[in-house]
Design a protein around this nucleic acid. Structure first.
Lengths: 348, 348
DNA sequence: ATGAAAGCGCTAACAG
DNA sequence: CTGTTAGCGCTTTCAT
C-alpha cells in the first residue's frame, strides 16, 4: 500500500464515553431524533463539539445501507450545455433529501473526439460501488449493453439520448425532429443549399443528422454533411472544408451543436464571408453563449435545463420504488432565431 | 426513515462460500494481490462474475481507512474558467492513483451574486465526512475561519485565491499584478479614461480591482469602478451604467472576468458603439470564449489550467505527508491582446 | 428515553 | 499461498 492511513479520528464511541452515555444515544442525537431528551441532546452535542467529532459518512452509509446520493455523470465541462443540464438536475432534486455527486468523463476541451471509454466506465462503476441511490448520465457514449453491465441494477436515467436497457429511462429532446425543424426553418427562409456539420458517426448521437437528411430529401434538396468533432475547432475545420470542397457554396449551415456553429462562424469570418448576408448559421443546444449579444447565434433549443430536471424527477420516482418498463420522455425542440440567420442574398 | 434500503447485494462472503475459499482470499483477488495462485484467482473471479458480485467501496474504504479520493469543489459550471481549472486538476493527479469527486457550489447561472454559503459548506462537510484524502477548492467564497472549521484537518488547496489558514495552501495568479498590467497595457495604448467592472466587494476576490486602482492612481488617472455580479448580464448592466453616468465616456473598460466583459461588449453594441474603435474592452481569465474567433476578446490570462495542475500537485504532496507552513504559489498573469483593444480614436 | 448487542461488507495482521 | 480473527465506525432491533 502506497500511502499511510489517515490518523484515527474521534468516533461516536469517544463521544459516548466522554459524555457518559451509550453510542446508540449519540447516534440518535446526531441524526436529530426527537426521541432524545433535551438535556442529553445538549450534553452530547456539547461533548461532540468539544472533542471535535466528525461523523464518518462511510460508516453510516455502510451500516444504514442507504446513501441518499445521486451520481451525476457529465461528459465534459467545456460545453455549456452540461451546465444547463446540471442546473436542471439540481432543481429537480431540490427538497428530495438527495445529494449530488458528480464525475466528469473527459477533462480535455477536445473531448467528444476522443472520449475515453475507460474513464466513463470507471466513473459509473465508482458510483455503483459507492452504492449511490441512482445515476444520471449526460453525454454517455457507451453501448446499452456496457451500461447494463456497469450499472448492475442501479437505477439510471440517460439524458439527451435514447438508450434502451432494462432499468434505464431516457429523457431527451426529439433530435430527429430538431434536425427536421432546422432544415424546414432555413428552407422557409429561402435556403436550398443547406450544409450540415455533424458529430462523428461513431457516437450514439446521430438523430439530428438523420432529421436533417430526412428533411432535405423530402424537400428534394441534396444533403451535404461533414463530420467533425463537436468543438469550436472542429466546427472551424468543417466549415473550412465545406467552403473548399463544395461545388456551389451553401447559403446556410446547420451545425450539430453551438460550439461547432461558433467555429463555423469563425471560419466564415476568416474567409471574408459575412453572416448572415453570405451564409446563415444555425446551431443546436441554445447555450448561453449562443444567446450572448456578441454572438447572436440562432440555435435549436433542446431545453437542456428541462431535460435535467425531468431526468432527476424520473430518477427520484425510480428510487422511490416506482417500477415498470423503461420510460422514454422526449421533449419537442424549438428554433430560436437570432441574427445569424436571414434569407439568402439572392432572395432579398 | 423515508425510503427503504436497497436490496442486499452479493458480498464477498457469498463469493467465498460459493467458491469454497475464505473471504480474505477473495479480498486479495479483488485487490489484485500477486500472492494468490493463478488457479484460485481464476476460480474466484469466475465465481464473482457468475454471482454478479459488486465490491462495496463504502465497506472497503471504511475498513482500510483510505479513500484514494480527492474532493473538488467548483463554484459553478457556467463560467468556463472552472472547466480549465478542472482540466488542470485532472492532469495533475494523473497517475497518482487518486480519484476525483466533484461538488458544485451554485447551479444557477447567476451564481456569484447569490452564492449559497450553506451549499458551499455542505459540499465541503460532505467531502470531509466521506474521508476524502484532500480537497481542492475553486471559487470558495467563505472565510478562512469557516473553512478551517469545516475541514477539521483535511488537507486542502484553495485555487485562484489566497486563503490563510492552517493546513491550507493556495495556488493563484497574482491578481493584483494582473489588474496593474491591465491598466498599464491599456495606458500604453494611449488610454487615459479606463473604467473597471469589478466583482462585488463582499466577495473575497478583490485583488484585480486593487491592482487596477493602484495602477490608475500611480499614473495619475482617476479610477472609475462599477460593481456588478460577474456574469454576462452583470457586465451588461455595468457597462450600461458607465455609459449612462460617466461625465466623459471612458475609452477603455477592464472587466474583472470574461463573462462580464462579454456583457460589456453586448451593451456597447446595443449603444451603437464600436469595439475597439470607440471603446476598448479587456477581460480576465482568458477563457475559451474570449479566444473564440467570433468574440476576439482581449483578456488577462491567469493560466487557469496551470493553477489547477499546480494545486493538484501541491495537494498530492500534502497527502503524501509533506508538512510545513502553508504554501502560497502565485503565477504571473499575462495579457493576451486580441481585436477588442486598440489605441483610442483621438490617437490614431 | 436510553442501553446492549448484533451486524453492515470489507481489510489487515497473524498463523500456518 | 490460504484461513482465522479482529476490527473500521456507525445503525438498528430489542429490551428496559
Amino acid at each position: 500500500m502506497d500511502s499511510r492511513a489517515r490518523p484515527r479520528s474521534v468516533t461516536m464511541e469517544d463521544v459516548a464515553r466522554e459524555a457518559g452515555v451509550s453510542r446508540a444515544l449519540v447516534s440518535l442525537v446526531m441524526r436529530e431524533s426527537p426521541l432524545v431528551s433535551p438535556a442529553r441532546r445538549a450534553l452530547v452535542l456539547e461533548t461532540a463539539e468539544r472533542l471535535g467529532y466528525t461523523p464518518n459518512r462511510l460508516a453510516s452509509r455502510l451500516a444504514s445501507n442507504r446513501t441518499h446520493t445521486i451520481g451525476v455523470f457529465l461528459l465534459g465541462l467545456h460545453n455549456p450545455v452540461f451546465a444547463d443540464i446540471y442546473a436542471g438536475i439540481a432543481e429537480g432534486i431540490e427538497g428530495s433529501g438527495e445529494h449530488l455527486m458528480v464525475a466528469v468523463g473527459a477533462a480535455e476541451q477536445d473531448a467528444g473526439t476522443d472520449v475515453d471509454p475507460a474513464r466513463e466506465a470507471e466513473a459509473i462503476t465508482s458510483f455503483v460501488d459507492l452504492r449511490v441511490d441512482g445515476i444520471l448520465l449526460a453525454g454517455y457514449t457507451g453501448s446499452p449493453e456496457s451500461l447494463t453491465a456497469l450499472l448492475r441494477g442501479t437505477p439510471a436515467v440517460v439524458i439527451t439520448r435514447e438508450l434502451t436497457a432494462p432499468g434505464v429511462d431516457s429523457v431527451l429532446a426529439d433530435d430527429r425532429l430538431g434536425g427536421r425543424l432546422a432544415v424546414e426553418f432555413l428552407n422557409e427562409l429561402g435556403h436550398d443549399r443547406i450544409a450540415h456539420i455533424a458529430s462523428r458517426a461513431t457516437l450514439p448521437y446521430g438523430s439530428r443528422r438523420a432529421g436533417y437528411v430526412e428533411a432535405m430529401t423530402r424537400l428534394g434538396l441534396e444533403p451535404l454533411v461533414v463530420e467533425e468533432s463537436m468543438t469550436e475547432r472542429g466546427g472551424h475545420r468543417a466549415m473550412g472544408e465545406i467552403l473548399r470542397t463544395a461545388s456551389t457554396r451553401p447559403t446556410a449551415v446547420f451545425a450539430n451543436n453551438d460550439l461547432a456553429a461558433l467555429g463555423a462562424l469563425g471560419a466564415l469570418a476568416s474567409a471574408g464571408l459575412s453572416v448572415p448576408r453570405d451564409v446563415s448559421v444555425l446551431g443546436y443546444d441554445d447555450t448561453a453563449f449562443a444567446a450572448s449579444d456578441v454572438v447572436q447565434l440562432s440555435s435549436v433549443d433542446q431545453h437542456g435545463r428541462d431535460l435535467g430536471r425531468g431526468a432527476a424527477e424520473q430518477l427520484l420516482r425510480r428510487i422511490a420504488g416506482e417500477d415498470g418498463a423503461p420510460v422514454v420522455r422526449r421533449l419537442a425542440p424549438r428554433i430560436v432565431p437570432r441574427q445569424s440567420v436571414a434569407p439568402p442574398r439572392s432572395w432579398a
